[in-house]
Design a binder for these strands. Structure first.
Lengths: 302, 302
DNA sequence: CGTAATACATAGTTTGAGGCTATGGAATAT
DNA sequence: ATATTCCATAGCCTCAAACTATGTATTACG
């Protein structure tokens, strides 16, 4: 189990203070002990972590990276004890994983509200695609995940909302001439724009395309709905966008025409997901409530 | 430094195998040693982690949570060692690669204008991090790339603009009390939020952090500046944002206070880059002009 | 050029966390 | 009842890591 946690603490301290001696004082160990441990770690890893000399100790490039990771490990280790002390979800650090097609549009209001009501909460947001979210929850990188319900079998779920899909097109597009919900048949022969494979949304859109007789553009493989919107604006096709995004986009006043897709399967259900062991805690229920309220505000108007 | 890494290994093994004895075998220690360590951890944390009996050992709810986090810590610890072992334009289709920290903010206006002026142009936008952009240009996935100048040696470049970096913070943050450009010394001791490694911006911010005596938060490793802004709003630290983003953000009317960083190196230069063979075509010069105009509009008002 | 100061490395000794063997105790199955 | 299965307790032992004392290298300065 090398390097030891203590050794990680040591190298972090040295990196922070830039001097072995000073770090030793702060760590309440003798300077030789610290030097020995540094040597130990370097021998063990087979890399020089610090350049030592009269000017103190400066991290090498690898050293800096190791220190960075060491910090993360030590922090997670600290959090371990916090779990026991309990205090619930709204204290300490809450690591929230979220789909990139939801997070930046749903969370701003939520974050503000949480920040106001629970100043001691440190919220950590990571946007990842579905596959990584699933893995992250299992491996303990996330405490809670906001994702599509169907991708997390066996986990504790709490439904947040259903969002319909919308099509976005330039205002001079043929389909922009009519209004109201857009039946699936209207998509026949069209080029659809969506996220790259690996994202849940793209699978959903692929299914729609198949049934509607449309095809998926191969032009875009990024992660950003904004870029899809841009491509739609340039006439590359119809951007298929989730309801939350479409709502914020419409609110912003855009150069695109938005039409809701009228089809039972042009919908996805978003849930708040936590590791199965926990059960529904009062805190997760409270967070779900906040998220639901925000979604309703965005989707069904102020 | 309790619980020890080894202790974490132990509880994970027990959780996995559901039996102390079997876990002891797998771990190559005697059963009493393992029992002793389990008792040690439980005493230390003050919680029962496993219910032991004839049927083996089953994790309690807290126990399961601790085990989950232990797994994450051990995985990160494993990764530590891996670190050491470890780099005719306006017609038809124009494949434009762009940094995710620029594209969605710079391009909307540009796309609209291109669409108006060159209806036959099909613009394909991909947002990728610097490394992938470089590769994409070399491998021919992109026709043009909008990126930082210094990462594309040997390629044909045309400077578009320089953008300064901004710090974003909640309005109740200490640094929000004063106004005007923020000198680097003001960042001392602060936690900075930026994109995950692999993005050019994070390297730039890491450099600033080093010189300013600030440190980079490890909390976020996604690809979206929006998520960084959210984290800043939640009080997780100072979001360091590129000028273009800051400008659109300010324009949108936000709950964050924005202050420009006053430092010669808190700047990045954005260029339009094409494979060296091409030379500067009239068309690429025209596109550069459009991009420059849009950047100026965003950065310096209108 | 020589002495002082600074900062890390090496040498030798001591100690306690954690390992081992042997055995006890509780719960179920025969 | 007795055997079996698992985990806990007791007592001993050993090596990783701490400490004190001292060495070495580089820079500063008269």
């Amino acid at each position: 189990m090398r390097p030891t946690l203590r050794q990680l603490e040591y190298i972090v301290a040295v990196a922070d203070l830039g001097q072995v001696g000073a770090a030793a004082v702060q760590l309440n160990v003798s300077q030789p002990s610290l030097s020995a441990q540094l040597a130990e770690v370097e021998a063990d890893l087979g890399v020089k972590l610090f350049l030592r000399g009269r000017g103190g100790a400066r991290a090498t490039p690898v050293g800096a990276e190791i220190v960075r990771r060491a910090r993360a490990i030590l922090r997670d280790h600290q959090d371990l004890r916090a779990v026991v002390r309990g205090g619930g979800m709204f204290q300490g650090r809450l690591r929230l994983g979220v789909l990139p097609s939801i997070g930046p549009y749903l969370l701003p209001g939520v974050v503000r509200r949480l920040h106001d009501e629970h100043p001691s909460l440190r919220l950590v947001v990571r946007d990842e695609n579905t596959r990584d979210l699933v893995a992250g929850l299992r491996e303990g990188r996330h405490d809670l995940v906001i994702s599509t319900a169907e991708d997390h079998p066996g986990a504790q779920q709490e439904t947040l909302f259903r969002e319909e899909l919308w099509a976005a097109m330039p205002q001079d597009h043929a389909l922009a001439a009519t209004a109201g919900p857009l039946p699936l048949e209207g998509l026949r022969g069209q080029v659809l724009l969506t996220l790259g494979s690996g994202h849940r949304l793209s699978q959903l859109v692929a299914g729609l395309a198949g049934r509607a007789g449309a095809r998926i553009s191969e032009d875009y493989e990024g992660t950003s709905l904004d870029a899809i919107r841009l491509m739609a604006a340039s006439g590359a096709g119809l951007a298929i966008l989730p309801g939350i995004y479409a709502a914020t986009e419409a609110r912003r006043g855009t150069d695109l025409t938005l039409r809701r897709l009228k089809d039972a399967s042009a919908v996805r259900q978003i849930s708040l997901i936590q590791p199965s062991a926990h059960g529904v805690t009062p805190d997760s229920a409270a967070l779900a409530g906040i998220l639901r309220a925000e979604a309703a505000r965005l989707l069904h108007g102020n």
